[in-house]
Nucleic acid binder design. Sequence first.
DNA 1: ATTCGTCCCCGTTTTACATCA
DNA 2: CATGATGTAAAACGGGGACGA
Length: 217
Amino acid sequence: MSEGDQLRRIADEEMETNNSGGENAEMNYPENQNKRKRYHRHMPEQIQAMEQFFRDCPHPDTKQRNELSQELGMDPIQVKFWFQNKRTQMKTKHDRQENAYLRVENENLKAENMRYREVLGNASCPACGRMASIGDVSLDDRHLRMENARLREEIERISAAASRYVGKPLTNLAVAPSASVPRSTSLGCGPFFKGSTSKAKGSNDEEDSDDEPKTAP
DNA sequence: ATTCGTCCCCGTTTTACATCA
DNA sequence: CATGATGTAAAACGGGGACGA
């Protein structure tokens, strides 16, 4: 990690001397000078500029980061960290939205499934009036059965997918089935989870949007 | 095939700040 | 109003895999 270490050292030394953040410049750490973590908040203008850049390019290369850092009076490593944290933040946001959507969709499917079950349970032969059996179900009923099976599969699939986010099976989750949540919207700025360069690992093909609904605690 | 440098993601730590009892 | 506990977001960091030279 030569570059990173160098940059880190430079950043550390610089902040050691002038605490470039400004906000906490008066803070003194008389002991453990070499161990403490230098922490400060970036300036609102710096964040605003990086946010703007992020919208167009979530994966700036070294040259872009250096230019940005010079422009904003920041260390390149700080810019790098900021973009890294921002991508993580956006991904978390997206995952939460996706999870909320899947919950609602799952509840809707369960309700639909219940309705189909009810219809099938009350089905009777139109000719003789007795309860219908598999042999004499109408085409509509067969269609309902197929649809029911399909919904079951879908519920299982979604439940499995959602449980990856929640950590437990979705059937245990109490959800208020209200208005359906729109499918996650597009951020419109490229595949930044996957990485615009070919270097990123993993296989995130997600997109993202702003204005996440805060998940209830 | 191996090594090296750099990148990124992921998870974690540290710090500042807000909220609430 | 002050104060301590608690939660959360942001900045920084370390580890490890991927990739190209």
